[in-house]
Design a protein around this nucleic acid. Structure first.
Lengths: 249, 249
DNA sequence: TGGTGCGGTTGACCTGGTGGAACTCCAGGA
DNA sequence: TCCTGGAGTTCCACCAGGTCAACCGCACCA
């Protein structure tokens, strides 16, 4: 049954995007799409809740995949009742939440690259219709929300970590989107390495930032300690080392 | 004329938000709002392009202020013709673009805090209506876009800086929104200090991140040098200082 | 054979949003 | 003084997205 449904589903999606790009989004009525997909108008609205949704049909699924994938890395969250008790959560050293978020974002990227022609068609359509660009923004934000909540739930709950989490989630999504758009404009390139590099930069900045000004402000998970010293460019190496020595008290 | 217009304008806005919160957004027709504001339905649509827009009327103005304010800090961009010639732009040491973005975000924050009851009423409304939350997302994203473009246009155009700019803009917006929401839930608090601190953290992370892995990867504008050393938590101060000494070659 | 439930269909209906035509008011110009 | 043009308003008709409720066909099951 599912096979049949997804078949007619995909049929309707293709018909819709085709019509939209050929004769414009506004000038295409839902009735036309329904006719093209051989269903009634009401059935169209049953399957896709709105005219816009047909364009972003698979996004919802992808988002769900991401949420499930993230949830899978923190099994202790399954019984939310118990997890109330351990305020300071036991840290699983195998899982780096920042890395997990990057993994999730990478999955999204790969999904789009994998669905090459679908993604390109949708991108061409979005270029024309600002209303749809806005709509995509909303779904994009859902990823950010999922990432933020994941980090909030897995990392220690102090304030500066929270800020870092919010910033990291937003950064990952924004950078991912920028690189994805770059690929969409030039699908011949292989931007996976760029994505990896950018994510690595973000992770580095996040770990540094989570230290904050206070030297003991919540150790990063890896059992290490980060020292940041800002000195004059003219300072010699010995001078710098002394500054660091002093900073450590 | 402008005074009269803004007067009836505000009247309509207040009437609309009042009706929305009292009897629900969906259940309030545009005709009711128009009647309450003593104008015809057509006039309503002339003034506010849509039913949603009436809720976010001042956001557009605020965004414009932000854009103008940012543009004012880079006078060389006024004649876009000339700026084509200087690929490597002359750096104005008085202006730190990251700081400017934070200033702009702070202005937005202050605006909301200043319009206390308006902001609170809108927040209460948004809590009820997801459609409006999504709409606000879109306007929020316009800030992010403005910030990203500003940074892109003022900073050096290499790849890693671009990534840092995108991440920074997204972070500032996300953190601003988070703290603003915190204030909206608890308007008695003074969260300006928290905002400042969070922004300072973000700037520090951004400057660190723009250095990249290579120690000489483009000095930050302030004529300083950043050293990062990662050592074991158990290491003593001397040991750390030696590690830094070594890192400096 | 006769329920029972479910997805699809149908048609009526509501409302946001657009566009056109008429009207008023006001400024300026011959 | 009268004309004219433009801006703002109102009314009206219309389109199209989206919902609702009733109904239909069909498979499954006792």
């Amino acid at each position: 049954m599912t096979a049949v449904r997804t078949h007619t589903h995909a049929q309707a999606v293709d018909a819709a995007i085709d019509l939209f790009t050929r004769q414009g989004y506004e000038r295409t009525t839902v009735e036309e799409i329904a006719d093209a997909a051989r269903v009634s108008r009401a059935t169209f609205f049953r399957r896709f809740r709105s005219k816009e949704d047909v364009v972003f049909a698979d996004h919802e699924l992808l988002l769900e995949e991401v949420v499930v994938m993230l949830a899978a890395t923190r099994p202790e969250a399954r019984q939310s009742e118990e997890s109330m008790s351990d305020a300071g959560r036991a840290w699983d050293p195998d899982v780096d939440p920042y890395l997990e978020v990057c993994r999730a974002a990478r999955m999204v990227f790969d999904h789009h690259v994998g669905q090459r022609e679908t993604s390109l068609a949708r991108y061409a359509l979005l270029q024309q219709v600002s209303q749809l660009r806005d709509r995509e923004l909303v779904t994009t934000h859902r990823y950010e929300r999922a990432f933020t909540h994941y980090l909030r739930d897995t990392l220690s709950p102090d304030r500066s970590t929270s800020t870092a989490s919010i910033a990291f989630a937003a950064s990952v999504v924004a950078v991912h989107n920028a690189i994805l758009r770059r690929w969409l404009r030039n699908p011949g390139l292989d931007l996976r390495p760029d994505l990896e590099e950018a994510f690595a930069d973000l992770r580095r900045a996040a770990i540094l930032g989570s230290g904050g000004t206070a030297p003991a402000g919540g150790h990063p998970p890896s059992g290490r300690r980060v020292v940041v010293a800002v000195v004059d460019a003219a300072a010699g190496a010995d001078e710098v080392a002394r500054a660091v020595r002093d900073a450590l008290g």
